[in-house]
Nucleic acid binder design. Structure first.
Length: 754
DNA sequence: ACAAACTTGCTTTTT
DNA sequence: GCAAGTTTGT
């Protein structure tokens, strides 16, 4: 009983209610920083301790491995020895394990492969060929993403074809999809989306199996529910059908993955689907200062379609949100890094407290350069993931082939690394022969090997050199398969590395061999964790791990580095100091999301997610000019989001740029102000000089014609930034001194402001 | 098997 | 306008 008291202690009334509500459907709307994970873990512990629910019958699903691990750790501390019996995992890993066990029902044997992105693309290319479509007209990426979208709404190729009627591209995709299904089946493989789709299908077709899982899991919880897609929702519904002990936690305002088929309607319509669902709103924020929270609230309130719920905090007011602008991305980066250095020097922040967030990965380059220049250590989230590195992928490809020889995609990757005299043409011939006879490529190779061992003529006409290469290769793989059945995983890896020539190949490559070999050894270290399992299960688990990890997963705390991260990846994280860079129209909101209101609202949520990551300080930065892909990029207007944040919570920051950038003339006395610019944009004319507003064409005696990019009201004057034509670039000018004259619209110098 | 020349397209990327 | 991918040539 004391333990139970502990579980409720320190919770606010809403949190407590959420923990104590154990039966029936429950929807928890959890605002940012509202102690969501705490509530989930305490609720699980409470179920076990107070209600005597067996931990064995509790299933908790998350989206990231990181979230799953965090939850498991916390539960270990809360529920102690019980924790091990809980099922906590991502949707995908749960399904992957389930299919290992039950896959037979739908024609998947235990050792099935999980196709990664590359496998999928090359498979799609192959299918396009089979269906006789030109990959130029139908880019494999686009076809794959259409198929993926269909899978995420639980459509097989037939259903997709039915829906596609009249839409030519979709029809084509549905036809390719049919070939793709067949290819996956031949390879004894599934792709990411299949993990969910095929599980749902299995449950539909075999109610007995579903029954078993329904009986086992009497309590189901789903985290980040706003990001579930139709397949995930359906799966959850199936599992909780009988008992309806279905608890979902999420925040529609943080739904930022609709482009990955997440369907926010799952959470918005939850009450319709479960009329007797209890709804609890966690509104108290424990993370951010009041100023930061209110600024974020102000922004998100501009979204039309919203489930209203009250956010508040007892935290201190804190400092206003600081806003600053720069000439271009380099100056912006210089200012950010300069300010971070100041924060560590003059205040008590550490580098590890600071994060810089951006909309697109390309923005990291300027930040990295500024870090290098100013000697600030950084960690870049994203980049090539560990398991995506070439050397690791080559190694895992071998392991996958050893685990499942039906997997032609993997075979194709492995066969010429290192080169062993089996070129594209031999493989092509071999592949055709194999498909013609309805066997896998490896089986075909095996037959050829057998024939040559028995001194029989090769069943296919191949160069004799190729035939002997094939025999050697088959030999190698079969030896490895034998080892995989009796030895531990690391032993298999060691033999593989030396016997396949992969070790030599990596160590003698010209691209940083030491580093690459180190990665291989790191991988070997990871593999050690799976040594204990009886062969070949250890191999299976290792492969599952390699297919299902993300970039944020292995993000470790680094005290002495700042973090560079996209806004998407930042979801779920928090930092004392946050900079959001690139607050410009066309970037945030991104130009590709401006054509629909829904998409623009998602951009707003993305910005909201970023802002609510900040605990103490929040900076919003923008640049006038940004070099997109080398292109001039054109002058960019301030993001509408800046205007939507309540004015009184913002303050111009006037950060100094340590990185020298000579375009700007020395700034007299004062802060530049985005707010003022916005006011000016709204045609509030400055009190002196010609009335200028953003977008006006002007003429300068020395610089020629240009366009007003911004007006900033300083203490005593108005400072305008003008983008001049003819390679002159942007200048900041004081209106009272500068010989500027306003041109009428007909004299527009044609710079084309937005 | 690699390099040079060309084409293309250009958000985000939990698993 | 560039980087990445594809095609073509040696």
């Amino acid at each position: 009983m004391t333990q139970v008291a502990n579980l409720l202690e320190g919770l606010n009334p809403a949190q407590r209610e959420a923990v104590e509500t154990v039966d029936g459907p429950l929807l928890i709307i959890a605002g940012p920083g509202s102690g969501k994970t705490r509530v989930i873990t305490h609720r699980i512990a409470y179920l076990v301790q107070e209600y005597g629910v067996s931990p064995y019958s509790i299933l908790a699903m998350t989206f990231t491995n990181k979230a799953a691990r965090e939850m498991t750790d916390r539960l270990g501390r809360l529920a102690g020895p019980h924790a091990g019996a809980l099922t906590v995992g991502t949707f995908h890993s749960f399904c992957a394990r389930l299919l290992r066990i039950e896959g037979d029902f739908i024609g998947l044997s235990r050792n099935y492969s999980i196709f990664d992105d590359d496998d999928q693309i090359s498979a799609i290319k192959q299918c396009l060929g089979q269906a006789d479509y030109d990959p130029k007209r139908y880019p494999p990426r686009a076809v794959l993403s259409a198929i993926s979208r269909a899978k995420n709404v639980l459509q097989d190729s037939q259903a997709m074809a039915r829906d596609a009627a009249g839409y030519y591209f979709e029809e084509v995709c549905a036809r390719v999809y049919r070939h793709y299904e067949e290819l996956l089946a031949r390879n004894n493989a599934v792709d990411f989306d299949d993990l969910l789709l095929r599980t749902v299908q299995l449950f539909r077709e075999y109610p007995v199996v579903l029954q078993r899982y329904q009986d086992r899991y009497g309590y189901l919880m789903v985290d980040e529910f706003q990001d579930t897609n139709v397949a995930q929702y359906q799966l959850s519904r199936q599992l909780s059908q009988g008992h309806q002990n279905f608890c979902v936690v999420g925040d529609p305002d943080q739904s930022i993955y609709s482009w990955r088929s997440a369907d926010v309607r799952n959470i918005l319509n939850f009450k319709n689907d479960y009329p007797r669902a209890k709804v609890i709103s966690l509104g108290q924020n424990y993370r951010s200062t009041a100023n930061i929270l209110n600024a974020a609230k102000g922004l998100i309130e501009s979204n039309g379609k919203r489930l209203d719920h009250q956010l508040f905090t007892d935290n201190s007011t804190g400092q206003p949100v600081r806003v600053d602008e720069a000439y271009d991305e380099d100056e912006e980066a210089g200012k950010v890094i300069g300010e971070i250095k100041r924060l560590t020097r003059e205040e008590s922040f550490k580098l590890g407290d600071c994060a810089v967030m951006y909309r697109v990965n390309a923005q990291s380059r300027a930040m990295e350069e500024a870090c290098l220049q100013q000697g600030v250590k950084y960690r870049l989230v994203g980049g090539t993931r560990f398991y995506q590195r070439k050397e690791i992928r080559d190694l895992t490809a071998y392991l996958r082939l050893v685990y499942n020889q039906q997997d032609d995609q993997t075979l194709a990757r492995v066969v010429s690394v290192p080169p062993r005299g089996l070129g594209a043409k031999s493989m092509q011939q071999l592949g055709e022969w194999a498909t013609g006879r309805g066997v896998s490529t490896f089986d075909a190779m095996r037959e050829i090997t057998l024939a040559s061992r028995n001194k029989q003529p090769s069943p296919v006409s191949l160069p004799s050199r190729a035939a002997s290469s094939i025999a050697k290769f088959v030999d190698l793989i079969e030896r490895l398969v034998a080892i995989s059945r009796e030895a531990e995983v690391v032993k298999l890896i060691d033999v593989l590395l030396s016997e396949s020539g992969l070790q030599k190949h990596i160590q003698e490559s010209d691209e940083r061999p030491e580093e690459r070999w180190e990665n291989v050894m790191d991988f070997r270290g990871i593999a050690q964790e799976f040594n204990a399992e009886t062969p070949p299960d250890g191999l299976g688990s290792l492969l599952e791990r390699t297919s299902l990890v993300s970039q944020v997963d292995d993000l470790e705390d680094a005290e002495d580095s700042i973090t560079l991260i996209t806004l998407h990846q930042a979801k779920g994280l928090e930092f004392p100091v946050v900079f959001i860079v690139g607050m410009e129209e066309g970037l945030l909101p991104h130009s590709r999301s401006l054509d629909s209101e829904e998409q623009t609202e998602e951009e707003r949520r993305l910005c909201y997610v970023g802002m609510t990551r900040a605990e103490q300080r929040l900076y919003l930065m923008r640049a006038f000019r940004r070099n997109f892909r080398g292109g001039s990029g054109g002058p960019a207007a301030a993001s509408r989001f800046l205007r939507e944040i309540p004015e009184d919570l913002l303050v111009p920051a006037a950060l100094s740029s340590t990185a020298a950038r000579t375009v700007t003339s020395p700034q007299p006395g004062g802060g530049s102000s985005i707010r003022a610019a916005a006011l000016a944009a709204a045609s509030v004319a400055p009190s002196s000089g010609p009335a200028l507003k953003v977008g006006d064409p002007v003429r300068h005696r020395a610089f020629g014609d240009g366009i007003v990019m911004a007006c900033e009201v300083t203490a005593s004057d108005v400072e305008v930034t003008v983008e001049f034509a003819g390679g002159v670039g942007a200048k900041r000018l004081l209106l009272s001194f500068a010989p500027l004259e306003k041109l009428s619209d007909s004299e527009d110098p044609g710079l084309g402001g937005r």
